[in-house]
Amino acid sequence: MSESSPTESAVAAPKAAERSWPLWEVFVRGKRGLSHVHVGSLHAPDAEMALRNGRDVYTRRQEGVSLWVVRASDITASSPDERDSFFDPAADKVYRHPTFYDVPEDVEYL
């Protein structure tokens, strides 16, 4: 592995370095008891700055009590192209829904 000083490379090509700031996806927990929800994305040099910028961009009006930032490159997503084959296995299992079952109408609390 070639040893190059990161500081030197940053000085040598500041523009390129700035452009390579990774993309972070931001998730906010709006309130205790709710799960974190994706709200958007931002660029930041590291996780700490991503958190700070996420706070300033997405929670200026107390929209959150907790924040997650995840490198966009670390997210593995299903592909829209294979939507059918990927989600099909759930399509023919109607018995997973309560309305599938035949029960007498006069039974209460069921």
């Binding site: 990161p6 500081t7 490379s9 940053a10 000085v11 500041p14 370095a17 700035e18 700031w21 930041a44 040099p45 590291d46 700055m49």
Partner: peptide, 10 residues
């Protein structure tokens, strides 16, 4: 921005 990048790299 350059300082933030250098800090992150370090």
């Amino acid at each position: 921005r350059e300082a933030a990048t250098a800090y992150a790299d370090k």
